[in-house]
Amino acid sequence: MATLTSATPTREMALNPTLLWKRMRRELLSVVLVVVLFIVIIGPMLTVIFWAFAEQWRYPSLVPTKWGLSYWQETLTRADVTAALPLSIGLATIVTFLSAVICLPASYAFARMNFPGRQGFLLSFLATNAFPRFGLYVSIAVVFFRLNLIGTLPGVILIQIVNTLLLMIWIPTAAFQNIDRSLEEAALDVGASRVRVFLQITLPLVLPALSAAILLTFVSTFYEAQGALIIGVPNIQTMPVLMYSIINSQVIVQYGAVISLVLWLPSLLLLTFAQRFVRGNTISAGFGV
């Protein structure tokens, strides 16, 4: 059904050039915008994609002079890469999960409870972004040595959680604040338990914001390198740490390009998930759900 409805206008357009042209004129701005954005946003990334599949690429050819997959095999069979990739995905997952566990109750408190210094505490999380990080790492390392956290998974998780606090607290706090309280109150008035009200009314209302916070946290953690380096090595070597070292110091461009593409995969997958629900939502909305 859904495919049918969405396919119809397309077919019409294809069959009727006048209509197509009219539509095109109406959409001219959009088309121009998409083309320009495509060149500006996707263009630079195309060079990375091309390099990943290039055996050789010499100026002045617009595309690689020799295509091939040999660097994929060479890169993906590197022992450091095969070890780092699952580690990175797992680490980002754990950090995101733990960050949600400690931050979401806090953001609920910030939004719903009244205690002295509430606003001050909430705003102080801005400091996690304002102090140049590198100035802090050496002192942090001293602390971590005392706590026996250097080179351990808990150590890396801790240092990476710091980077997630801002997003994971601010976004949900606002979501909790923006809920229309009358809904909850109405439910309470008809005798629903607090837990039930939270699970069935509050939570669904904040889920979009929570999804956003979690998605962004996962992506930024997945790409974090400096904290992971100073605290993690030698036992914990994440993909971004590896990628920095390969991109900056490798005469062979292809290794870096392949790793970049591999690193994109998880976040693109997440985006695709969102995409799928876009369509799902469109369909259900079409049926009036």
Binding site: P86, L87, T93, L207, L210, S211, I236
Partner: peptide, 27 residues
């Protein structure tokens, strides 16, 4: 949303679990 949220979480946990038990080669 609930689905999206649940799937994301589930995928995360699954991957985490997979790594936890399948990677003696990982550090």
């Amino acid at each position: 949303y609930r689905k999206f949220f649940a799937v994301t979480l589930l995928v995360g946990i699954l991957i985490g679990a997979l790594i936890a038990c399948s990677s003696p080669s990982a550090p």
